[in-house]
């Protein structure tokens, strides 16, 4: 019995992240699991501690989505490739974007695994995540999606500190916010 309780306590401590409580305006309040291009599943909140640029995309989107990915890359470069800056793109299309599809996409776009994560989650969690990030999307009958394109900057605590709708080139104001977030401890 004692051992079981100890085990339970350890499990609870593990999920509680062993740090101060999350701020109320942190997107990490949303308890969604994300599965990455290597098939690893972790809570969204496990990304806490490192500033992130976050966006949403889907792998079979041929026009704008590659530009979203490229804009994320270019923004990281323009901000001076800060070691502490991670990049996360979550699929709108969990039905077709399997782990394999994400892995192939990451390879085809030469995404550096040290800071890039492509992720998928369950359909209802995808909708919640989009609502949280203020991203609009709508599946069409032909398997395509209409969606808005935005990059969001999260600080280490998961607060949205900057947002840009500029895709296809870097947004100087957003780059400045990235430098600030990634430079400050």
């Amino acid at each position: 019995m004692k051992r079981l309780l100890l085990l339970l306590a350890l499990l609870l401590a593990g999920t509680a992240h062993a740090t101060s409580p999350l701020p109320g305006d942190s997107v990490y309040q949303l308890a969604v699991p994300l599965t990455d291009q290597d098939g690893h599943t972790a809570a969204f909140a496990a990304r806490r501690g490192t500033p992130q640029i976050v966006s949403m995309f889907y792998t079979s989107c041929t026009m704008v989505c590659p530009m979203i990915i490229d804009t994320m890359k270019a923004t990281r470069r323009a901000a001076g490739e800060p070691a502490r800056l991670h990049l996360l793109a979550v699929s709108f299309d969990p039905a077709r974007d399997s782990v394999d599809a994400l892995r192939r996409y990451a390879a085809a776009h030469k995404l550096d695994q040290r800071w890039w994560t492509l992720a998928r989650t369950a359909p209802q969690d995808t909708r919640s995540l989009a609502a949280l990030l203020g991203v609009q999307y709508r599946p069409l009958r032909d398997g395509e999606f209409n969606h808005s394109s935005a990059l969001l900057l999260l600080d280490g605590e998961g607060r949205i500190v900057a947002r840009t709708d500029v895709i296809g080139r870097t947004d100087p104001a957003f780059v400045a916010a990235v430098r600030k977030a990634a430079g400050s401890k």
């Binding site: 209409n146 969606h147 808005s148 394109s149």
Partner: peptide, 13 residues
């Protein structure tokens, strides 16, 4: 131009 890029896929409704 830029507005088109805000909405991927076949276009807004």
């Amino acid at each position: 131009g830029a507005d088109k890029l805000r909405f991927c896929g076949a276009g807004a409704i």
